[in-house]
């Protein structure tokens, strides 16, 4: 039996998703990436699938990519639930669109590989049910595929080692005053996952806003002279610009790489410096707090069992040096 961690990624690629995928695929000594599922989120699923394939091709990897769900489980049935969101993009001075996630990862060529000819939910169930070892599932987009799989075949829970999820916010939020984007897109799916009984490690914005790269890192990656280095540098530059304009953070000129923190945590859990065992539920009432991860911080004995390891802080230097190290391994 191999001592590598068997991993399934679930992404809405997405600029930080791309960095997460690269970090995972360039860590073959520790991670055995069984497949990458795609989902609607930062962009519609045809785009997130194409973008995932572009990243896979860049790395010359043969990891399977499987296309997943087109829309949230039920949220989009009520159009009112979308209106409270904050702007995703703005026009820069020269009229160019400044955004966190471009429609396509433009600096990469169109993909030549193809997704598997099956649905991500079917593939997830097949892969999990047929695996003798437990598998770690790393969802870094909305939780639609995962919740659909849990509803179709609840027994997959017994085959999952743990979820390491990017999503939610305890004291920091982005899409609305109450909610982080991934959870906000599909709150019901998230609550299904939180009630699944599987061990959950959650990377909310409180941790991921401290998992960032900077213009200094961008210079370093550009100096590598590799296609991957140029790509990472471009993503850093674009995200720095978008965050400065759309969502100023506690430090200026940083590019949080939310999704990559999940992968970094699997490689070295000490990148997280504050982890708390708590009860988390998701508000899905359609009100002001729609999509909020409600963390029970009360001192009274918990009314419901604790269900989540909530990561509240990150060793920013360690995160950056891990990414510098891993992402400079690419020959190409």
């Amino acid at each position: 039996m191999s001592d590598k961690i068997k991993v399934i990624l679930d992404c809405d690629t997405g600029s930080d998703d791309a960095v997460a995928i690269c970090t995972a695929l360039l860590s073959p000594e520790k991670l055995d990436v069984l497949g990458i599922c795609t989902v609607n989120g930062n962009r519609p699923v045809p785009n997130t699938t194409e973008n995932t394939l572009r990243v896979k091709d860049l790395l010359g990897s043969d990891v399977p990519v499987i296309r997943g769900c087109y829309c949230p489980m039920v949220k989009s049935l009520d159009p009112r639930r979308e209106v409270l969101e904050t702007a995703h993009s703005a026009k820069g001075e020269d009229g160019k669109e400044i955004t966190y996630h471009a429609e396509y990862l433009d600096c990469l060529p169109p993909s030549h590989s193809k997704p598997l000819p099956m649905h991500a939910v079917t593939w997830l169930i097949d892969t999990l049910m047929n695996s003798e070892e437990k598998i770690t599932v790393v969802p870094v987009g909305p939780l639609t595929n995962i919740a659909m799989a849990l509803r179709l075949e609840p027994r997959i829970a017994e085959h999952i080692e743990q979820f390491v999820i990017m999503g939610g916010g305890h004291l920091e939020r982005n899409s609305t005053a109450a909610a982080e984007f991934n959870i906000w897109v599909d709150p019901e799916a998230a609550q299904i996952v939180f009630e699944s009984g599987v061990k959950i490690v959650l990377m909310p914005l409180d941790a991921t806003h401290r998992a960032y790269l900077t213009p200094e890192d961008s210079k370093y990656f550009r100096s590598l002279g590799t296609k991957l280095g140029d790509f990472i540098a471009q993503e850093i530059d674009d995200r720095v610009e978008a965050y400065n304009l759309l969502q100023p953070l506690h430090i200026p000129d940083i590019a949080p790489m939310h999704d990559a923190l999940c992968v970094a945590y699997l490689l070295d859990p000490s990148v997280i410096t504050d982890i708390r065992h708590v009860r988390v539920d998701v508000d899905f009432s359609g009100g002001l707090c729609d999509g909020e991860t409600v963390v029970d911080t009360r001192l009274i004995p918990p009314v419901k069992p604790k269900n989540c390891y909530l990561c509240m802080n990150t060793d920013s230097d360690k995160f950056a040096s891990m990414l510098r190290d891993i992402l400079s391994r690419a020959k190409n």
């Binding site: 109450a178 508000d283 009432s285 009100g287 909020e292």
Partner: peptide, 8 residues
């Protein structure tokens, strides 16, 4: 929040 859910 007046949504009647977890964050009510």
């Amino acid at each position: 929040d007046c949504g009647g859910g977890y964050a009510d």
